[in-house]
């Protein structure tokens, strides 16, 4: 139509609410399903992973201490922002996964709806996962779920956006903070999601997004002593085994990879996977 040269986007990482380049200065070529060049994505290093953990830890106190109502509103805000940039994501997902526009649109719509689904869980999960326990004595006894802490999330490789959202939202809605390693081959929707998160009242550091080689980034995260849990969705069986082994060093909670249909009703499994149950006893007497 015109000869105008489009402005390309420089994709960056998302760490602590900021958009840094990889400290390593490395990038890697991201192509569409047919092998056409789309962009250069940052090739994150172990140090980027370390920085992201620091940012996530720093954000944990505030985010886990925020009211559930507040966290729900923030997640809903993400859905609102995504809705406004729906077309961008449809096109990125289509490119990334080699889907038709309509199929990509279905993925994006489902992803937006997934934020809404999880947003609503924020102030309900304690009511389904907690309990008042009738102990045999004069004690008030209540169990309530609490977030585990910093969760390393290996996003699914094949579902660059719906799968990504389906692993981030359940981890953070309950108050965890996340260090996300994107789909290695299709990182661009994830890096764009960071721009949405940054403008959706999500506090910096709650979600940190790293693109790069899963096999390079996951081991330091799995071994990191200040990471409390790891979601292995994006790891193959061999990598998953070695990561789970490394995770044993500080007894991280491990969500093993499995065959997941990301379009299906997600249920509560991922929501409940990164919660700790705290039980409080107090005497009742005058």
């Amino acid at each position: 139509m015109s000869d105008r040269l489009s402005v390309l986007k420089t994709y960056k990482l998302y760490v602590g609410g900021k958009f840094p380049r990889s400290e390593s200065g490395r990038v890697y070529e991201v192509t569409d399903a047919k092998g056409n060049w789309l962009a250069n994505a940052p090739l994150s290093s172990r140090k980027d992973a370390r920085d992201a953990v620091v940012a996530a830890r720093k954000a944990f106190g505030g985010w886990s201490g925020a009211t559930a109502y507040n966290r729900g509103q923030v997640l809903y805000r993400v859905a609102e922002m995504l809705e406004g940039r729906r077309d961008q994501f449809v096109s990125e997902v289509a490119d990334a996964e080699g889907l038709s526009k309509s199929k990509a649109a279905a993925q994006v719509d489902a992803a937006i709806d997934r934020w809404v689904w999880y947003a609503g869980w924020s102030d309900k999960v304690a009511q389904i996962a907690g309990s008042a326990n009738p102990v045999a004595g004069p004690y008030f006894n209540l169990s309530a779920p609490e977030p585990t802490g910093v969760v390393a999330v290996l996003a699914p490789q094949e579902s660059s956006f719906l799968g990504l959202v389906s692993v981030i939202a359940p981890a953070v809605v309950t108050g965890n903070t996340a260090v996300v390693v994107t789909s290695e081959g299709a990182p661009l929707p994830a890096l764009s999601l960071a721009e949405v998160l940054a403008t959706s009242d999500v506090p910096g550091g709650v979600v940190n997004i790293l693109s790069g080689r899963t096999a390079e980034l996951a081991p330091p995260l799995a071994a990191h002593q200040d990471v409390n849990a790891i979601d292995l969705a994006g790891a193959d069986a061999e990598l998953a085994k070695s990561l789970e082994t490394a995770a044993a060093d500080n007894l991280k909670r491990v969500l093993r990879p499995g065959r997941v249909d990301w379009t299906a009703d997600p249920g509560t499994d991922r929501l409940l996977a990164f919660l700790e149950t705290k039980t409080v006893w107090h005497p009742m007497g005058v």
Partner: peptide
């Protein structure tokens, strides 16, 4: 950051009360 909090009591156990830890 602990799985069981005993307030004004300690080392109380009951089959109805979940028991278990955080972290290591």
């Amino acid at each position: 950051r602990a799985g069981v909090i005993w307030s004004n009591t300690f080392n109380k156990f009951d089959p109805a009360s979940p028991f278990g830890g955080y972290k290591e």
